[in-house]
Design a protein around this nucleic acid. Structure first.
Lengths: 231, 231
DNA sequence: GAATTCCTTACGAAATCTTTATGATGAACG
DNA sequence: CGTTCATCATAAAGATTTCGTAAGGAATTC
């Protein structure tokens, strides 16, 4: 079930590469390795990676140049660069070359994975947006046919309920503030009518949550709004 | 390889200035000197310094006033003030005037350079990574998803708690004065209600510190405010 | 006109925020 | 060296806001 993200590690130091391989592999990532930029580009042509971990200091085609080529050839591919402390100027260049984020060596593996996951999540989110089909967990929302299914079973929603769910699922993972929900659902002049929202959420939960009192899909962010759980 | 940082030392006492010059120069900094505030501002126009070391007690335009002018004219320029022991009010004023950090005289050169380097690193990092993910130690704060994790496990925070942590982590390493925290969290009319802040900090510590009585993340700067530890 | 959808109100429960009180800590002072 | 005073930490109670839920009526659709 759980989709293991594929990450390409590009690093000339075989020791670091090895250690990254072991650690990330143990954490559930599928790792590909490359010792230089050219090699990395070849591997990208063969395998569909979810992200690239790229050392900025490499002999031959350097990290910056590799980064530029990658982001040209594979726009949207998350690239995280490994930089050394106090070489902040490199980062500006790297950003320009299309890097998404940085981790400075020596790094904590926790920070690395956190940024890696965040970058992958972001890249996926972009794909979802123009898509007419959103699938999260057991729930499938078809924006074209205006239909919602949970575990292959159709759930009948009223138009307002559908719009709410649609908005929440599109922004799954991040809280949707009351105000935004109200204005997108009812119009700009409605901004304070939270009661409407409460009632609507309640109806929606009754239709799609196993236990409306203990929701697992539509979660409430107290004082802020609501958010759909992510994947 | 290592880019030597340029630091402007502003200090009226020629002896201290001289000694700072020698020490910092030996440690790899490129030093510019100014004997008063006016002179310092002139030099800033000519050279692109990475940081300023500014004595708070100076004849003519005092350190505070100089600091205010500098941070207005060069926002983002790290300013570290040299204060004398037990002049807490000066420190608050200095922070308010735009200083990043301070070192109390008499100081250890080690502490001075540590703060100096930290301030420079921070200033560069801000330009480079306007990131929604802040990772410090075991704590990860995601501003987009409005979530905080410590060691991969989620910590539930109320909105106020989140805002406080968010501000502290964003400014990690430098002291956040009461006043600023109060006005950013409660609004401009709140400036003296330190009790609120104390209680809020206490709640936050209970949720994220291993031992709230001996905090390692949210440190208190006596008479000044609070400071999130850096990396 | 029957069914569906939507709007509106109401109220107990829960979460969050504010306020007060008390003990601990540490610096200032005689 | 003990006292005084201010700040800080902490707990706990009280006030306020927000949430969930049911229910009734208006508007709309079929």
């Amino acid at each position: 079930m759980e989709h293991r993200s594929k990450v390409l590690v590009v690093e000339d130091d075989a020791g670091i590469r090895q250690s990254l391989f072991q650690t990330l592999n143990a954490l559930g990532f599928v790792i590909g390795e490359a010792g230089n930029g050219e090699d990395a580009l070849v591997r990208l042509r063969m395998v569909d990676y979810d992200a690239v971990l790229l050392d900025i200091n490499m002999p031959g085609m350097g990290g910056i140049e590799t980064c530029r080529k990658m982001s040209q050839q594979y726009p949207g591919l998350p690239i995280i660069m490994l930089t050394v402390l106090d070489e902040e100027d490199d980062k500006v260049e790297a950003l320009d070359a299309g890097a998404d984020d940085f981790v400075t060596k020596p790094f904590q593996i926790r920070e690395l994975t956190a940024r890696l996951r965040a970058a992958i999540r972001r890249s996926k989110a972009v794909v979802v947006a123009p898509n007419e089909l959103i699938v999260i967990g057991d729930v499938t929302l078809d924006r074209v046919r205006h239909r919602v299914q949970k575990l292959e079973v159709e759930i009948h929603l009223t138009p307002k309920e559908f719009d709410l769910l649609s908005y929440l699922m599109e922004h799954a993972g991040r809280p949707a503030p009351y105000q935004r929900l109200l204005t997108t659902l009812w119009g700009p002049e409605y901004g304070n009518e939270r009661e409407y929202l409460r009632v609507l959420v309640n109806q929606l939960r009754k239709k799609m949550e196993d236990d409306p009192a203990r929701p697992t899909y539509i979660l409430t962010e107290s004082h802020i709004g609501y958010r759909f759980r992510e994947s």
